[in-house]
């Protein structure tokens, strides 16, 4: 499974890539593998304020409907509208073209609650046992 260094990860398999006070959020390569073909991504409400690990939006695959959680507290400032007609971008490019939303971070210290790439790799190893 591909894990991108420089990103931070949640136990629910979301990633966040931070630049200044803004961040992009998506689901990991492991998550897209587990879900199978992604068929729908619900457009989140732009401007909505979220606490860390609140539900950011809903996602559906051929296998299941699931929630995507926000790795940090902040405001939703963008949605990857390419996913409306091509949700399979998440399968093809989970860390780049398949990002889901942009968030304005309100509390950078919460990053300590997330895993870095190495810790996430270890976490995945633990799940596969």
């Amino acid at each position: 499974m591909d894990v991108r260094s420089g990103y931070y990860y949640t136990k629910e398999h979301e990633w966040i890539s931070i630049e200044g006070n803004k961040a992009k959020v998506g689901i990991t390569d492991y998550a897209q593998h587990k879900l199978g073909d992604i068929t729908f991504v619900d457009k989140p409400q732009i401007g909505k304020i979220l606490k860390q690990f609140d539900v950011l939006t809903g996602i559906e695959s051929v296998k299941a409907a699931s929630d995507v959680y926000s790795p940090v507290s902040g405001k939703i400032i963008g949605f990857n509208s390419a996913l409306e007609n091509s949700p399979e971008l998440i399968n093809k490019s989970p860390y780049d073209q398949g990002y889901i939303a942009e968030i304005e971070i309100s509390n950078p210290s919460e990053i300590k609650n997330l895993m870095d790439a190495n810790s996430y790799k270890e976490y995945l190893k633990g799940l596969e046992k």
Binding site: D37, V62, N91
Partner: peptide, 9 residues
Amino acid sequence: PIHYGSVIE
């Protein structure tokens, strides 16, 4: 076998 890569494809 459920799929060989992509159910949709």
